[in-house]
Design a protein around this nucleic acid. Structure first.
Lengths: 300, 300
DNA sequence: TCCATTGATCAAAAATCCTGATCTAAACAA
DNA sequence: TTGTTTAGATCAGGATTTTTGATCAATGGA
């Protein structure tokens, strides 16, 4: 059995209009055309769908049941034409975005909410990555990246960058950790453990990592929330985005260390490729992102 | 845009097989046929689905997205052919069953579980009715009825009946109700309230109800569970299926009244029309119903 | 009873789809 | 570089399917 969409449309129209004639008028056909389609449908299905003993052809129970399923087919077909129309009107089929896990997630979450609307046909893929993993994911084909900030603050490699405010990282430790009461320049004197968020690039070899920490003791963590927990537990010291530890600094659970370099300001950027124009989904994402982002970075 | 199932099948096959040629072989066509179908699909959709700059045609992101939706259409189409095959092999499109609310529901619930299996295409409709409502619903077209028992115990009106064991109704009241301590023949002397389950036939006129209770005080309830609650609350006395009040009799919350007629045995019947043969769904229902029914009626 | 309406049937016309030959261009090996 | 292989596009003719308009039978209402 191999039903045609035409046959299913005829079945649906006849059931809705109540007669072959009315359905034929709706489909801009002649009644005999529908007669032909339905006859073949019944023949191929091996089922009798209409009861012709009375003048008006009425659906049999079998016909009604099959109609239910036929309407599911037609519904998906309509979904296909709608999708084609949307793609034609500028929506990307898929939008991939990378976010540096050090950035505040709240504005990103607000932006992805817009993709739940039914009129947005684009599939959204959002990856939260760390360190080199952010650019690695971007190079693999993501259309947008929210990065912590390039060295020097400006763009490089011919990428199009839009500044998104500023993000402060602070060197902190638990208030009951010995390092909290030590003075400047003490960091190199002791073998305190430095907490670091692990690079999320898959093929990244830990040996090739710039050995700025020398042979000090280090603890690698998967993300900043875990790192915060470890810091609060007194595992060691480390850099944290200010917005993630404002509460702990206020309660005094964490303290800002008094070191030569204990504060670093980054300038987060929205990065995209300059050659290819933004699709409607990318524009939607940016429109829902930028405005609140500035505000949230400032206050958090 | 009006895509054809052929076009969608071609799109799906090319994506699965990796090339026009392999897909053509799978569909028993010639490559140029698929070329023609896809060209028209792209033309009507106004989208480019394949990238032909390289030798092997590869799906564009747009093509991949549209393919996702196309596969949904084909999936529903397959569901349609499967449904047709099932209906052809003897499954009814719909099965309607009525159950008298006085009967134990457990065996019925076991029977309807079988209809959750995906290989059962039949839509099941089950109505729990009371009194005249049971036969009323059966006459409206239900294929099967589980009735409390006809007067005289046998079948009537040329219906096919199968006995399902026996069901005892007991005349009971709350143990702290005045009637509980009264002796036989007292029922007519006092104006105690009789609790009754209301007839569920929609057009049933309460005036035409056989006035066997004369002008006594009555309280109509929607079902036996509600009636049990009202009995436990001491609202009055009434008949209850034994299986529903076994627990309350055991704890002593309800007591079996000592009256001339305080016990009635019914013989529940599975009723169906003798002229039309049973479909597979009806057979499935009965097969899952009968065996446990006898056991449950006896023990409950 | 007649008459309007519904739908089936049929042959011819129209549209669609398939085929097989031919052509272009990319990938690949020498 | 050159020639070979392979994937797919294109095109005209043929096969198939669908549509049409006329005709016919049957039902239900006036």
């Amino acid at each position: 059995m191999d039903p045609t969409l035409l046959q299913l449309e005829a079945l649906d129209a006849i059931a809705r209009c109540g007669s072959f004639g009315a359905a034929a008028a709706e489909l801009n056909r002649v009644p005999s055309a529908l007669s032909y389609l339905i006859k073949n449908l019944e023949l191929e299905a091996g089922l009798s769908l209409f009861d012709r003993t009375h003048r008006r052809a009425t659906l049999t129970p079998t016909g009604r049941r099959l109609l239910e399923q036929a309407r599911l087919v037609l519904k998906e077909r309509d979904g296909l034409t709608a999708l084609a129309s949307e793609l034609r009107s500028g929506w990307e089929p898929e939008l991939r975005v990378v976010v540096d896990g050090a950035l505040p997630l709240a504005p990103v979450i607000r932006a992805i909410r817009a993709f739940a609307e039914p009129e947005v046909p684009t599939f959204l893929r959002l990856d939260v990555e760390y360190q080199e993993g952010v650019l690695h994911r971007f190079e693999q084909g993501a259309e947008l990246a929210l990065v912590l900030g390039f060295e020097g603050g400006g763009g490089e490699e011919g990428l199009h960058c839009t500044p998104l405010g500023e993000l402060v990282l602070l060197l902190v430790a638990a208030s009951d950790h010995p390092i909290a009461s030590s003075k400047r320049e003490d960091l190199d004197q002791h073998n305190h453990v430095e907490l670091l968020v692990r690079d999320s690039a898959p093929a990244f070899e830990v040996d090739r990592k710039p050995s700025f920490m020398g042979n000090r003791n280090v603890m690698f963590l998967s993300d900043f929330q875990t790192k915060k927990t470890a810091l609060l537990g007194g595992a060691g010291y480390g850099w944290m985005p200010a917005h993630l530890i404002a509460d702990s600094l206020a309660t005094g659970a964490l303290v800002h260390l008094e070191q030569e370099v204990n504060r670093w300001t980054y300038f987060p950027q929205l990065v995209r490729r300059p050659d290819q124009p933004l699709g409607r989904a990318a524009q939607l994402f940016i429109a829902n992102l930028c405005l609140p982002f500035e505000a949230l970075v400032a206050t958090e």
